[in-house]
Design a protein around this nucleic acid. Sequence first.
DNA 1: CGGAGCTTTGATTTGGATCAAGACCAGTGG
DNA 2: CCACTGGTCTTGATCCAAATCAAAGCTCCG
Lengths: 235, 235
Amino acid sequence: MDHVILNRAASERVRHFGPRVDIVREGDKPKDVHLILSGWACRYKQLEDGRRQVVSFFLPGDICDINVFILREMDHSIGTITPVSIADLPHEFFDHVAARHPRIVAAFWWETLVDAAIQREWTMNLGQRTALERTAHLLCEIWLRLRVAGLTRGDSCDFPLTQADLADAAGLSKVHVNRTLQELRANGLIVLKGRTLSVPDLDRLMRAGLFNPNYLHMEHEGQQLDAATTDAAVG
Amino acid sequence: MDHVILNRAASERVRHFGPRVDIVREGDKPKDVHLILSGWACRYKQLEDGRRQVVSFFLPGDICDINVFILREMDHSIGTITPVSIADLPHEFFDHVAARHPRIVAAFWWETLVDAAIQREWTMNLGQRTALERTAHLLCEIWLRLRVAGLTRGDSCDFPLTQADLADAAGLSKVHVNRTLQELRANGLIVLKGRTLSVPDLDRLMRAGLFNPNYLHMEHEGQQLDAATTDAAVG
DNA sequence: CGGAGCTTTGATTTGGATCAAGACCAGTGG
DNA sequence: CCACTGGTCTTGATCCAAATCAAAGCTCCG
């Protein structure tokens, strides 16, 4: 059973990090592939003058940097948002174990392709959407990804991102994110308070964000490496 | 020899398109992987109200949509800019041929990873850079990619993109792209006239665009599917 | 109770969008 | 050979979304 194999591999080398620390830094030599067991993290890039762009979020069950060990050096950093536990999947896992288990390989391919699709949608988001649409869109994406991972309860979920995080991801100033969130609240589209987000009417939020979920390719739910798998790996 | 295999596969099904037509449309069922033999194309996404974002450019030798046939439907469109010739690599190419030739598989992985890295950099570009930096950055990227593909002559190259194309890629209005290009010209950073671009001093242009070429991972030049390969496939 | 992070508010500025004409083509047909 | 047309590029005037600057208010925590 694939889960068993994956769990064993994942439980071999687990590391724990505090909140707001770097796991990987730009310029590092890539070594392992990381599987997020718990906690939130993000991938970001920074300019010399300090401008910072979050280019993706990692939620529990996500994989970072699949096969990057082909590359010579990291072109981005990965930092935690909350405390995070990760499993390092070493080079050899892919060379030996995964190669004999096509369904695992397929699952990794899947993740890679969806990841790329998300990155394209972010490009769209930053290039074309207004601040309100952009913020709503980002919240929709996170919401749906959490839901697939089984991390929502009813219409609520934990939401550890600060407004500064959202600003770095949305390419907006934090002051403007603040005002945009207020507008979303005023329209009854979100309730966001004390690290908890509620989405009373997802459809309306999706409409506000011109959100089309096609790019998440969720038709495939069963086959991905889901939160359940990774929970098992930790516990 | 890998080239021979690839060339044979690529020459089997070649299609030709005029300029400014769609090769693939959002919502289509993905079928083949496409190898660009000649011409320029782009991947783009569009909102219902017409706002359009170019999310990547394809130059000769590039591959679009590697392994996308895992996905159920396309989340973006691909359109030509110039006349384009493409080779369709069918599903079976990957299932049967490529699987026995690890260097080909590695080359495809490589392309996939670099593609993702480029997409992240575009996210950064749109999120953090000013119009001038953004435009300069985009020109640097295209320039370097063309150079690797052997498509530059000295400090010049063909440049079929209109200002409207650049606007859609940079997330700027076309009027503003026009003014930004004028500024780049005034600073002696580019010469752009009649579908030809010259870059008299690449270092200065790179500085203007806060351009760090690390994300293109060009250390690997020899191993990629380069323009020479694909030329052989056509000729 | 005194910070250190966050979040909120208000005032002001600005980069880039939008609107509206023209100018400059290159190709087409009469 | 010239007029016409449709696409592209350019310029100028005006407007607006979002940035920046500057202070407070919270809130959690030691």
